[in-house]
């Protein structure tokens, strides 16, 4: 008979040769002993350390993750602080710079103003000197020309003029000299 023809023999055989559902008492008993013994031995010697070891490792990993989280948090706060500090330093530097610039500006202005003043003063002094020298020269010229004229006149007139005459003549001469320039 082929596999294609199902038959009653499938369940009727008592020795288990062609009955797929046949339960062999020997094999069942043996399985009971083997599996029971395996359960006991493995539970005692293998699964306990394995499960405990895995739990311990898991605990260790989760602890380390927590620690890493904490460290990251710490690093973040530190970074923030440093960034704030850095920003403060930047502002300070800018302020110092601005101050220095302002100082330099004011110093420059002061120097320029002083120099201007000095120049003006020098010019004025020079002008004053020129004026003084001019009037001195005019006076000296007048005096010497009076003297010359007196000398000439004395020699011409032949007589010495009095002191009053000299003064009168000097004043007339100065008048004469200065009037065209006035």
């Amino acid at each position: 008979m082929s596999i294609l023809t199902l038959n009653n023999g499938l369940l009727l055989a008592s020795d288990g040769s062609v009955n797929p559902l046949y339960v062999s008492a020997d094999l069942a008993l043996w399985t009971l002993i083997i599996f029971g013994g395996l359960l006991f031995l493995l539970g005692k010697f293998a699964w306990k350390p394995i499960i405990e070891g895995l739990n311990a490792r898991e605990q260790c990993i989760s602890d380390k993750i927590d620690a890493a989280d904490k460290a990251e948090q710490q690093a973040r706060t530190n970074l923030k602080q440093y960034e704030e500090k850095l920003a403060g330093a930047h502002d300070e530097a800018a302020a110092v710079m601005a101050e220095a610039k302002a100082d330099a500006n004011s110093a420059k202005e002061k120097i320029v103003a002083e120099a201007n003043e000095e120049a003006i003063r020098t010019r004025q002094r020079a002008l004053g000197d020129i004026e003084t020298a001019k009037s001195e020269a005019v006076r000296e010229l007048a005096e010497s020309s009076v003297d010359t004229a007196v000398g000439l006149a004395s020699s011409i007139v032949g007589r010495a003029l009095s002191k009053d005459d000299h003064a009168k003549l000097i004043a007339e001469s100065v008048e004469r000299f200065s009037s065209p320039g006035a």
């Binding site: 199902l6 009653n8 499938l10 369940l11 797929p20 559902l21």
Partner: peptide, 8 residues
């Protein structure tokens, strides 16, 4: 299937 086996 098992019932069929048993019945068959």
């Amino acid at each position: 299937i098992i019932m069929a086996f048993i019945a068959g």
